[in-house]
């Protein structure tokens, strides 16, 4: 009896040590992944004097919003609008094109369906920098550089492989009877697609939309290559331009500008993060 008790005691002791270890490690990991953001937010609220008089890990002496005023007095609003317009259009086109393409591949009867599927998979393997040179030269020829179009087209196209895959996986288990019923009721396939298929795809549409919106907002290399004028800049380029002008002497506005560019993605992530995470891990957990 005593022997068993000792064993149980040893076990719970072991369990406790384990719990403490897990807690300590999870707090450390939390600091690793979240502290940079906390640090940025805290420093965005500091005055110039704060920076010179106290270390960066200190809290601001008092909350100061002047840095944000500076950000909004600059061209940041313009960059913001540009990024929103581009992200919205990228999301709409990616969702519509991927959904219709995947639907056709999965449900329509034609030859070469497997080839079509592989054709779209190729895009996942191709390093996107490779298309920069031909795309840049083509844009230059047709005077398309420095336009929304120049950014939207490649973002939609490179978003498609993954989106098509997600939709294909979804349509695999989609019951054809539902479309059949709608068609018998007298609507065309197009109508049935909008009124019957799209509502059922709601979750997968939100997943694709969230992923692409965040990718688009954070996109850098296409805008760096194709955009040259200040009024067409996206937030990514704008942030760097802003830091170049303001941030070298006074760090406060730089931190404020970083916070401003991060807020929209944080909001989207807060409300739709679970869709985004499921989209990222889906297809990846496959044998």
């Amino acid at each position: 009896m005593k022997h068993v008790e000792a064993k149980i005691g040893k076990r719970s002791m072991k369990k406790q040590i384990r719990n403490v270890m897990v807690t300590v490690v999870s707090v450390l990991v939390f600091l690793l992944f979240v502290y940079p953001l906390i640090y940025t937010v805290l420093n965005s609220l500091k005055t110039y004097d704060d920076f010179t008089s106290s270390p960066q890990y200190a809290l601001p002496a008092k909350v100061f919003f002047g840095n944000f005023v500076k950000v909004f007095q600059s061209d940041f609003i313009r960059y913001f609008i540009n990024s929103v317009v581009i992200a919205v259009l990228v999301v709409v086109f990616t969702v519509v094109l991927s959904a219709t393409t995947a639907f056709a591949i999965s449900k329509f009867r034609f030859r070469g369906k497997k080839i079509a599927e592989i054709y779209f998979l190729l895009g996942l393997m191709i390093p996107y920098q490779v298309i920069l040179i031909p795309l840049y030269l083509t844009y230059a020829k047709f005077k398309l550089l420095d336009t929304y179009f120049s950014l939207i087209l490649p973002q939609v196209a490179f978003g498609m492989p993954m989106a098509v895959q997600l939709f294909l996986a979804f349509f695999k288990d989609f019951e054809e009877e539902l479309i059949e019923a709608a068609v018998i009721d007298g609507s065309s396939i197009g109508r049935a697609f909008i009124s019957v298929v799209a509502p059922i795809c709601r979750n997968i549409i939100i997943t694709v939309a969230t992923l692409r919106a965040i990718f688009s907002w954070n996109e850098y290399i296409f805008s760096y290559t194709f955009i040259s004028s200040k009024k067409m800049m996206t937030v990514g380029l704008g942030l760097n331009a802003f830091v170049g002008e303001e941030g070298l002497v006074d760090w406060g506005p730089t931190f404020a500008a970083i916070v401003v560019t991060v807020i929209p993605t944080l909001l989207v992530y807060m409300f739709l993060g679970k869709y985004m995470q499921s989209g990222l891990s889906e297809g990846a957990v496959k044998s």
């Binding site: 086109f93 094109l97 219709t100 056709a104 490779v130 298309i131 040179i133 939609v156 498609m160």
Partner: peptide
Amino acid sequence: CFLLPGVVIYTVSVIIPI
């Protein structure tokens, strides 16, 4: 109608540039 728009956009800006 369903297949062409996606295939064209993808082909024009991913495959042809390569």
